[in-house]
Amino acid sequence: MFKRLMMVALLVIAPLSAATAADQTNPYKLMDEAAQKTFDRLKNEQPQIRANPDYLRTIVDQELLPYVQVKYAGALVLGQYYKSATPAQREAYFAAFREYLKQAYGQALAMYHGQTYQIAPEQPLGDKTIVPIRVTIIDPNGRPPVRLDFQWRKNSQTGNWQAYDMIAEGVSMITTKQNEWGTLLRTKGIDGLTAQLKSISQQKITLEEKK
């Protein structure tokens, strides 16, 4: 169930391209415009997507990853294993993690069937560096609404905000991946996880038929 919630949630996290980005210092504006741009692209490019579902990787690479804190999220997933990894191991892992996100997020976007969304009203940021933004996803086919909290983090150097995690039903996506990959990290280390991520990233994206 959580895996499905995570995939549905990713439908609204794909941010804007650099040329049309919203105010990078306001995570609420980023979330709002990102959702609108993403849904528009999914709707307008269905012919290309249906002809070649792996085209979704391109959308992810162009529109999402430049505005997601990939390395920060990847380091959180590694936890204690990050500090013990060599620079070469980290570089290989982050490259594999990025390719994994292209496949995983692309597969999530393949679930698009006309969903709509509501974003919580903007709250004062103050001096906060981590801000959760509640998004409610509404399914046109009558499924119950899904309420999610996207975690946005302020870059201490640039002042810009980027998304790095999502919490559904009190469970963090980062925590879920830590639990899912924990045994592999304990037995085969970061190299074993890197190899698995490379394998997963090679899987073809498949479209979910409308139910």
Rank of each mutant, 00 (worst) to 15 (best):
L65N: 04
E122Y: 09
N179K: 05
V60L: 04
R98D: 08
D54I: 12
K188H: 06
A195I: 13
A110Y: 15
E180G: 02
Q107A: 13
K188A: 00
T194A: 00
G189W: 10
T25Y: 10
K198N: 08
V131A: 00
F2I: 12
A14V: 10
N160I: 10
Y100K: 03
A110S: 11
Y117M: 07
E91H: 09
P145H: 04
V60P: 02
Q107M: 13
A34P: 02
K37Q: 13
A85K: 04
L5W: 03
L185R: 14
E99Q: 11
E209H: 14
K210M: 10
N26L: 06
T20M: 13
Y72I: 02
E208Q: 13
L184S: 08
G79C: 05
A95P: 14
D165T: 04
Q151F: 09
Y67E: 05
Q24K: 13
M1R: 01
A163H: 14
A14C: 14
R153V: 00
H113R: 07
Q178I: 09
K43S: 15
N26D: 09
L78Y: 00
A163P: 12
N44D: 09
E45I: 08
N52F: 08
D127Q: 10
V131F: 00
A18R: 08
G79S: 05
P15M: 10
K210V: 07
N160W: 11
D127S: 07
D54K: 09
P27Q: 06
P87A: 10
D61T: 07
Q24F: 08
F97R: 00
L65V: 11
G106P: 07
I130V: 01
L11T: 02
V60F: 07
T25G: 10
I200L: 09
Q36H: 14
I137V: 14
D32C: 08
Q80E: 02
V171Y: 11
F39E: 01
T158A: 01
T20Q: 09
Q107V: 14
A88E: 13
N141V: 07
G114E: 06
R98I: 05
A73F: 02
R98G: 15
E180S: 00
K177I: 11
R50Y: 09
R50S: 09
Q69C: 03
L101I: 15
D139W: 15
Q46A: 04
G114C: 06
R143M: 03
L16M: 14
L11H: 01
D40W: 06
K154A: 02
T129F: 06
R57H: 14
K43C: 07
V70T: 13
Q69M: 03
T187P: 11
E63C: 05
A14D: 05
S201W: 15
R153Q: 01
V68R: 00
Q103M: 15
I174H: 11
T175N: 04
I133D: 01
R57L: 15
A88Q: 15
L76I: 08
K188N: 10
Q178S: 07
Y112R: 03
A34R: 03
P140G: 11
N155E: 00
Q151W: 05
Q62L: 08
I49F: 08
D139I: 05
Y164L: 04
T187L: 14
T183E: 09
A104Q: 07
D54F: 10
N52S: 07
N141L: 05
A19Y: 03
R41W: 03
R186G: 04
T206C: 12
E208R: 15
K3M: 02
E208D: 12
K188W: 08
L30I: 02
A73Y: 02
R41A: 07
A51R: 10
D61C: 09
E33F: 03
L207W: 15
A120T: 13
L184I: 09
V70N: 15
I200T: 11
S199P: 08
M166H: 07
T136C: 07
Y100W: 14
E45H: 06
A168T: 04
G114A: 00
P140T: 15
L42M: 13
L64R: 01
G114Y: 05
A92H: 13
V60T: 14
G74C: 05
L185N: 09
T176L: 00
I200E: 05
M166R: 04
G79N: 03
F97Q: 05
G192C: 15
P66D: 15
R153L: 01
Q62Y: 09
A75R: 01
I130P: 01
Q203D: 14
G189P: 09
D40S: 14
Q36I: 13
A9F: 15
T175C: 02
K154F: 04
P66K: 05
A21T: 10
M7Y: 07
F94H: 07
G126L: 10
K37H: 10
Q178N: 04
I49K: 05
K198F: 15
T183V: 05
Q115M: 05
V68G: 02
F2K: 03
I49Q: 04
K198V: 09
R98Y: 08
P145K: 04
E33N: 04
I137A: 01
L185V: 03
P15W: 05
A95E: 09
Q48K: 10
A19L: 02
T194D: 14
K71H: 06
Q123R: 13
Q157K: 11
G142T: 09
V171K: 06
Q107H: 13
P132W: 10
Y28K: 09
E91V: 10
Y93P: 00
L184V: 03
A92C: 14
N155A: 00
G106T: 09
Q162H: 03
A73S: 08
Q46V: 07
Y82W: 09
A95H: 10
V70A: 14
A95M: 14
F2D: 00
I59D: 00
K102F: 14
K210D: 07
K3L: 05
P121L: 09
S156L: 03
T86P: 10
A18E: 12
K102D: 14
E209R: 13
S172E: 00
A110Q: 10
L65R: 05
Y105R: 00
K210N: 09
K128T: 12
E208K: 07
Q118F: 07
P144K: 09
A19C: 08
E122S: 13
Y105V: 01
T206A: 03
Q107G: 11
G114H: 07
N155H: 01
M166D: 01
P87H: 11
D127Y: 14
Q178L: 02
A120F: 11
A96H: 12
Q115Y: 02
L76F: 05
P124T: 13
G192T: 15
K71R: 10
P87F: 11
K83N: 07
Q115I: 03
M7W: 07
A22M: 08
Q162C: 04
Y81F: 07
E122Q: 11
R147E: 01
N179Y: 05
E91D: 15
E91Q: 13
K177P: 14
R4P: 02
L193M: 04
L16F: 15
T183L: 05
Y82S: 01
A9H: 02
Q48T: 11
E45Y: 12
P132A: 00
I138K: 12
Y105G: 00
K154S: 10
V70W: 05
A35R: 02
N26V: 04
